[in-house]
Design a protein around this nucleic acid. Structure first.
Lengths: 162, 162
DNA sequence: GCAAATAAAGCGAGGGGTCACTCTTTTTAT
DNA sequence: ATAAAAAGAGTGACCCCTCGCTTTATTTGC
């Protein structure tokens, strides 16, 4: 799965052949099919463990640190590219859409918990926008390369402040 | 191109074959290759004319109307899905990345023009976040289906207000 | 302990099928 | 009569997956 994820992140799902995964993993063709019944199953497995990190609190430092984390992960493992692939595939595959919807809901729920009491009534709206904008920063990294997170930090804090 | 765009939007680039485009367009195989030298060229052509709309002003009504427009377009033509495909492909294709980067820059520049004078110094940051969040609403529509734009309107206004 | 037996894991060439693209022929327009 | 446009069957390459075989690990009987 590490091999598949690496290839998927740097070339996309469609441009990654089984032969690529075989080469990258060091395993053989037959060996892989002992653990996954199809290429699609590998895609789904990779998507399911696609853990997006989150800040520990909705403070300026925590949010800044969180975006820095997203940034370095994009640089080191092309994780942002992988996320872009996952969302595109989820847009046209109901099966994957369900997986991604579950993960998004979990992320929003986690953010809701961090919203300060003073803004409790809008917690749902805040979480929705917060998660969406975080994902969008990742998307921008995937397309435009390394990018200063400052505008996104500012916007996230503005969303929290209301 | 209408045929290609429609298919791309509902099935994705990789899951759309030339035969699909032939069927959808009503043309023949050979006729299409008189206007495009390859499938990739069709993809690029579709991406290049992928016009994202924008609000006319950064007021509550204009922003709300803008998101409504994005929403209805997603419902009627699956445009949100197409956008997801474009970004994913741009993430792994330098050629497409250049196209998309140009379009994103144009969108940000257009938003900068709308920023009120009182917030002029942060106009660049605001435009960056505004465009990113708009795209993210489109992404959410693509994955989660029809979705209330209210949280996104609120967040966009919060970003503008700072 | 040890060897036979059974199970699990790995291997890689090949089949079947799809798909992007070409090329010759036919139709339409000038 | 000539050129441009369209047609659509054919082709070769690619790619996912299967299957018989080999190697490694685990269990069992003595």
């Amino acid at each position: 799965m590490d091999a598949a994820r690496a290839r998927f992140a740097s070339h996309g799902f469609a441009h990654t052949s089984m032969a690529d995964i075989v080469t990258e993993s060091g395993l053989s063709n037959g060996a892989i099919y002992r653990y996954f019944t199809s290429k699609d199953e590998i895609v789904i497995a990779v998507c399911e463990q696609g853990t997006e990190a989150l800040p520990r609190a909705l403070t300026a430092e925590a949010v800044g640190g969180f975006l820095d984390h997203v940034r370095t992960r994009a640089r080191d493992t092309h994780h942002a590219r992988l996320v872009a692939q996952i969302y595109a595939e989820a847009a046209v595959s109901p099966l994957l859409a369900a997986v991604v919807q579950r993960q998004l809901a979990a992320l929003r729920a986690a953010i809701v918990e961090l919203v300060p009491d003073s803004r409790r009534p809008q917690a749902g709206q805040i979480a929705e926008a917060f998660v969406a904008l975080s994902i969008s920063y990742s998307l921008q990294l995937a397309i435009r390369g390394d990018l200063d997170p400052a505008p996104f930090t500012a916007a996230l804090l503005a969303i929290i402040k209301g």
